[in-house]
Design a protein around this nucleic acid. Structure first.
Lengths: 275, 275
DNA sequence: CGGATAGTTGAGTTATCTCAAATGCAGTGG
DNA sequence: CCACTGCATTTGAGATAACTCAACTATCCG
């Protein structure tokens, strides 16, 4: 059903390490970990800021050591432990938040606490390309696993992207993907049963991680709580639990520690393609 | 809850008429009506193509008669009767479809025919700003009321927009609004009860039309079938019917012909703000 | 006038929710 | 190392919002 955009950032090699500057986290006081903690090392292939040569951690693609990426563009990197807020929903920010490593979630919420996770953010992805244009998206961003996040000066990054036709193309593709995922989410929430929603969420995460070289065979790191799965699929944590049990009972997948293993891709795929 | 972006296209005067070129409709053979049919006259305030000076029907904003809008930019206008497809979901198009008059809907669907309307398109709005960047959005566009739609050459319109900083800002805002509406739709579908969804849909349409000067006091044209309301709210036509009856019984609104009148804004607002 | 499409209403079903209690598990301080 | 606290997961029982099916009526359009 989905137009598979395999074209995205074909690179395969994992990224080289980068020296992280420590920085106090305003919203989450005890945001900790040292700069050498492996959980915070970036795996940010395909990051648009990096390709724009705007990331202090990297050189411009193809221009190995010359212009070593030190384009004059303000940015700060911060680290967040799992489950801490990265950006509050009404926070106006003068920067574009980009995930350098880890997994984050963007959500919209009701005053009563119920919420909907509208997007999971992988390493190398901006929270949303909309932050290039507008200071507030009405979305809350929070760390799912430990996350390192770099915040780029909005106007600077926008100009850097817009003046480069190749990056404009990348921007357009990223916007398209965001929108398409969002459309499919709406379709899931309104028209697909709980089993299909969960199967599709898992399959989608798996596929995106695989594309970035962050899947090992049939397994991925899976730091999501059931409550977060529920928030992402419009269900209840209790119901998610029951369905996951069913999946395990049917031998579709295994889920131990924070590790997810797909045992029956075919069976899962049938659920994904449910109609 | 929603960040109200009242800033959008403050103009109030209805737009002047434009000579429509008749054009055969490929998908919908009996697409008819003459160029003077009032139903097809544009009311397209705030159209980005128009502001780019790209619309043959209008001059550049503020430059009254000088450069009368005849920027060399391919575009064709077509008319579609209510309920006819404007763009099929997998259709790759070399153009950006912009609604000049009438009401259209963008939807994503399942092979079994179930679908979700993800966005209603008013006069002066592009089907999605993503068409500026990508040839296919996986969305089906269809006319809800009789629609006239102009199709602009993608690359041409994109360049015209990108080279003008003011229009880049407008583009960013439009993208933001699309995304925010889409986020709220997901929240509705997953976390709000049927009554709130319908009330919010109605309120949102009313507000958008009012902003464009297309509302009269408490009434608007309301060409939607109940099936379309259902497709937009993730419900069943039967259920929509029952809820609308309830609304009428409670004196919240009237719905005769294809005309919607709000009778109790306060009551409606309470539903909209449900949590 | 007749056929097709849209809306209404009722009866019965079901997917998902709520509530509640039990278990497991991870981190903390003694 | 252990008891303790808090969070996450599991399981069951019962409630309910929304669905399906079906028949009927109203409205539109040729």
């Amino acid at each position: 059903m989905l137009k598979t955009s395999e074209s995205l950032s074909g690179g395969s090699a994992l990224s080289e390490p980068v020296a992280l500057r420590r920085h106090p986290t305003p919203g989450a006081e005890q945001a900790a970990s040292t700069s050498t903690d492996p959980r915070y090392l970036p795996t940010c292939n395909g990051c648009i800021a990096r390709e724009a040569g705007a990331c202090p951690g990297f050189g411009v693609k193809g221009e190995a050591s010359s212009q070593r990426g030190f384009v004059q563009l303000q940015s700060q990197i911060q680290v967040f432990p799992a489950r801490k807020p990265i950006l509050h929903s009404r926070e106006e920010a003068d920067f574009v938040p980009v995930i350098c490593s880890g997994l984050a979630a963007a959500s919209v919420g009701l005053p009563n606490g119920r919420k909907q996770i509208v997007s999971f953010l992988l390493a190398g992805e901006a929270a949303s390309m909309n932050y290039l244009f507008e200071p507030c998206a009405g979305r809350a961003i929070e760390a799912v696993s430990p996350v390192s996040c770099r915040k780029f000066h909005r106007a600077g990054l926008r100009e850097a992207v817009l003046k480069n036709p190749a990056l404009v193309t990348r921007l357009g593709r990223a916007l398209s993907e965001e929108r398409e995922r969002s459309d499919q989410l709406s379709l899931d929430l309104s028209r697909r049963p709980a089993e299909a929603r969960i199967a599709r969420l898992i399959a989608s995460l798996f596929q995106r991680l695989r594309k970035k070289g962050q899947a090992q065979d049939d397994a991925i790191d899976f730091p999501l709580r059931q409550q977060q799965l529920a928030d992402a699929t419009g269900l209840t944590a209790v119901h998610v639990c029951k369905i996951l049990s069913r999946f395990r009972a049917r031998g579709l997948l295994r889920l131990d520690g924070r590790r997810l293993t797909l045992l029956d891709r075919k069976g899962l795929q049938e659920l994904v393609e449910w109609h």
